[in-house]
């Protein structure tokens, strides 16, 4: 008895010294219903969700979506023993049981965390809002308005999207889908490491990659602008997206000039068109509806429709320079 007790004690000490990796709660990820707290999913080992659990891998996009200047941390989770599949330079195909997790913070303080869970019946998008103590994020199915101050000092009513609004952007042919992890918007180094870790079947070949946003002054302005438009607009503005009926398609690989808005008249823009007649007038950013809507914060005019209460001067500058230099 004493020996056994001693053995147990030793074992317990060993476990405490080198804890086994805490696994993600796969049953909750793939189960039914809506987990009420982020913690239930087990993507992080600490209540503040700063330490990713085993298999939860951080990543970044070359050029990200801008959301009122929020600081974002992104993670991808692929369950043990499974593998994502590369699909050319497009969206990585993540198997059932996978998840994408995205923190939104201002001044280092977490505001919300959005998750995409790949269940048997498809992807599910859910928003979680952080408490003041930063130790619990609760489901906000119906969204929420939160007063905060942006990095540029603007006091705003920040909009946490509701579950349906998540899908507004995350939908292709009305099916919920991830947006971000397309190979052409991920670095070669990250893709290589992800494949090497066994979580991706191969390193996808990418002919043209969206440039790093921080490098925008050093790359051709068209590349920087088109990368920005892809990340900020193309999830709706594509032939299968929420804005399919507009005929304005802003994806990275679109080559048709009319589809990109060049001398294209608006269809259902309503007063979003302002005094302008065309989406993009080459050489004339101030006569282009695209920039007009970017530079507005007014409901019914502002684009993107969701997730932006303030202007994005850096994004505007790149789009402006692109249109100004266009012939």
């Amino acid at each position: 008895m004493r020996l056994l007790a001693a053995a147990l004690l030793v074992l317990g000490t060993a476990l405490a010294a080198a804890p086994a990796p805490v696994p993600v709660n796969d049953a909750v990820v793939t189960g039914g219903g809506y987990p009420q707290t982020l913690g239930e999913l087990g993507f992080f080992t600490d209540p503040g969700a700063r330490q990713p659990a085993a298999g939860v891998v951080p990543y970044r996009l070359q050029t990200p979506l801008w959301t009122d200047g929020a600081e974002k941390d992104r993670f991808v989770y692929v369950p043990a023993g499974q593998q994502a599949r590369a699909q050319g330079d497009g969206l990585i195909d993540l198997p059932v049981g996978s998840a994408l997790i995205k923190h939104f913070a201002f001044g280092g303080k977490l505001i919300e965390t959005r998750v995409l869970l790949h269940r048997k019946d498809g992807w599910l998008a859910l928003p979680y809002v952080w408490n003041a103590a930063q130790n619990e994020a609760r489901l906000a199915l119906a969204g929420k308005r939160i007063d905060l101050v942006t990095p540029t000092g603007q006091a705003i009513s920040y909009g946490v999207p509701n579950k349906n609004q998540c899908k507004d952007c995350h939908s292709l042919d009305n099916v919920t889908m991830p947006i971000g992890p397309k190979a052409y918007n991920l670095s070669a180094a990250w893709l290589t490491a992800f494949a090497k870790s066994g979580k991706l079947d191969r390193v996808p070949v990418v002919d043209r990659r969206i440039p790093l946003w921080e490098q925008r002054a050093k790359v051709p302005v068209a590349d920087a602008a088109r990368g920005y438009l892809d990340a900020n607009c193309a999830h709706c503005h594509n032939p299968k997206g929420a804005a399919s009926n507009s005929g304005l398609y802003l994806g990275w690989q679109v080559t048709d000039r009319i589809a990109l808005g060049v001398m294209k008249r608006p269809v259902a823009a309503g007063r979003g068109a302002g005094p302008h007649e065309f989406d993009v007038v080459p050489g004339q950013p101030d006569h282009s509806i695209l920039l007009y809507r970017f530079a507005s914060t007014e409901g019914g005019v502002a684009m993107p429709e969701l997730g932006r209460e303030t202007r994005d001067p850096a994004g505007e500058a790149v789009v402006r320079a692109w249109i100004a230099g266009m012939r």
Partner: peptide, 29 residues
């Protein structure tokens, strides 16, 4: 007092019936 979104109510599912209510002063549609 609408702050965001392009319309008052957006429907993206099939076989929906909307009846007997009003929508006033939306910023967009």
């Amino acid at each position: 007092g609408q702050k965001g979104a392009g319309e008052g109510l957006l429907v993206t599912s099939d076989d929906v019936t909307l009846r007997d209510f009003a929508v006033e002063n939306t910023k967009g549609d």
